[in-house]
Structures are given as C-alpha cells and as structure tokens.
C-alpha cells in the first residue's frame, strides 16, 4: 500500500466512522432486501455493525484481521445452518460496497474515491473468505450427518429369545458392512442369540460386492456359532443374484422376514399355535 493509498484509505474510513449509524442502517436495508424476511432485522443489524467495527479496527492494528475473519466465519456458519445459499451469504458482505458508495457520492472528494477503490478490494477478499467459510461449514454438516446416518441405520433388534434381526436399509458399502458386522456379532455375544436374521428388504440393489459383504458377515457369525438367515429378497434381486452367478451356498435365504422368523422359531424348537380358531368355535356354540 503506497503512502497516498493509505492516506486516502484512512480518509474513507474516517468518513465511515463518522456516519456509522447511517451506514449500518443502509447496509442492513440493502442486504436484507433479497432475503425477503427470512432474517430478523435486529439480529442482522447487530451482526453487520460488529462486522463494520471489526473492519475499521482491522486497518488500525496488525492482528485486527483475525477478529474480522472470526466474525465472518461465524456469520457463514450460522447462515449455512439456516439454509442460505452461498450467494446470499456472500451478498451480505458485498452489499457494504453499495452502502459505502452512497456516502462517497455524497462526499464527492477525489481522495475518498481512491480510498473507495482500495476498500472495495478488501471487501472482495472478505466476500471470498465468506464463500470459503461457508463451504467448510457445509462440508462439516455433511460429514456429521453421514456419521449420524451410519449410527442410525444399523439397529439390531431382538425378535425372540435367541433370535435377533438386522433390517438393512440403503446401499451397502464396505464401511457400512463393517459397522453392521461388528454390531451384529457383538449383539450375538451380548444376548447369547443363536439365530441372526439379516433382512435386506430396504437394500435397493445387490451386486457382487454387496453379496460378498453379506457372505462375509454370515461366515463370521457362523464362526462364532450362530446361524444366519438372509431374508427380504425381492423377485428382481433374486433374478439379479442368479444372473450374476453369485453362490449363496448353504446359507438359508427366505423371501420375507416373517418366513425367516418362522424358520428360526421352528429350528429352535418353539411352536406357534393359532388360537383364534378355538375362539370362533366357542362363539359358534354360544349361538
């Protein structure tokens, strides 16, 4: 920054400091116009005033920029969470130019105009910084959600004494299979269950890789001394499996979860009796 530049920059910053309230009012007005009432005016006013003060401070002290960047990152994070687009977020910074220009126009001095060019360059940098902060915030949100999804999507449920089931929903990849496998095997140990039903009704497609993952899980459960049943195989999936030539070997497969449960109950020696028929006959006698 040359001497002339820094003096003209100081001039415009003095101008901004003098007209702070007016400037903030105008800035809030311009930046909120395209958001159509999705934000609260008083919140934005506080945010933008803090930003403006940090901006004016940043040229005075060498480490003032850190404060400003922190405020911008906060702004981007909150807006990313509230579902604003990156454009709308950056616009909050860029609209400062318009508000300042009105001041410059009113002043009319040439030096102020030079300062405006310099300030405009700084604002561009800040705007780009909000873009970066916004993207980083969004990526973090996505990463968190992926992790939550992984935890949510693998429940192991107990169907009966000694029979547990894992309803799989969504596409199976290596990472998810690993989580499912570990959780299922741990549940087998914890509950002492001898039968495990893997229900793939919610799996949209089965290819050789998914089949391989399933086979591994079944093998591991077998090594621990449990029997695995795969259920919920839809007609198209059965067709795909046969067409691909995947061998399920001696693994028990059933069409529905109910069939698998009935099979596991039968194998573990539980008898299920339909009692409704007797009730009907009692009623018939009463009549």
């Amino acid at each position: 920054m040359t001497v002339q530049e820094s003096s003209s920059r100081r001039r415009i910053e003095d101008l901004m400091r003098e007209n702070e309230d007016r400037l903030v009012d105008r800035w809030v007005e311009i930046s909120n116009a395209p958001l159509r009432g999705r934000v609260v005016d008083s919140d934005v006013r506080r945010e933008l005033r803090d930003l403006l003060r940090a901006l004016l401070r940043s040229s005075e002290s060498p480490d003032g920029g850190a404060d400003l960047r922190g405020l911008l990152a906060d702004l981007s994070r909150t807006r990313a969470r509230q579902g604003f687009t990156p454009g709308e977020t950056a616009l909050a910074v860029f609209t400062l130019k318009e508000a300042v220009y009105e001041l410059v126009e009113a002043d009319g001095g040439e030096e102020v105009l030079h300062g405006y060019i310099s300030l405009s360059r700084t604002i561009d940098e800040l705007g780009l910084y909000t873009f970066e902060a916004y993207t980083a915030a969004r990526e973090k949100i996505i990463a968190d959600q992926t992790e939550q999804l992984l935890e949510l999507s693998t429940p192991v449920v107990k169907l009966w004494d000694g029979i547990v089931a894992v309803p799989l929903v969504g596409t199976l990849d290596s990472a998810r299979t690993q989580v499912v496998m570990e959780k299922l095997l741990q549940t087998l140990v914890d509950t002492g269950s001898e039968y495990a039903v893997i229900d793939i009704t919610g799996v949209p497609a089965v290819d050789t890789q998914v089949a391989q993952h399933l086979l591994k899980t079944v093998m591991a459960a077998r090594l621990m001394g449990a029997h695995c049943i795969i259920s919920g195989i839809r007609p198209q999936i059965a067709h795909t499996i046969v067409t691909l030539g995947i061998e399920f070997g001696d693994i028990v497969t059933k069409a529905t979860l109910a069939d698998a449960l009935a099979f596991a109950l039968r194998q573990s020696g539980v008898e299920v009796v339909n009692r409704r028929r007797t009730r009907v006959s009692v009623r018939a006698e009463e009549a």
């Binding site: 140990v189 591991a220 090594l223 621990m224």
Partner: peptide
C-alpha cells in the same frame, strides 16, 4: 470351538 470373539471372527473371515 466355543466363545469366539467378534473381532476374531472378522479377522478369520
């Protein structure tokens, strides 16, 4: 063979 741990079973597979 009895009492195989999950981690052991996964390793063997």
């Amino acid at each position: 063979v009895v009492g195989m741990r999950p981690a052991v079973a996964i390793t063997l597979v």
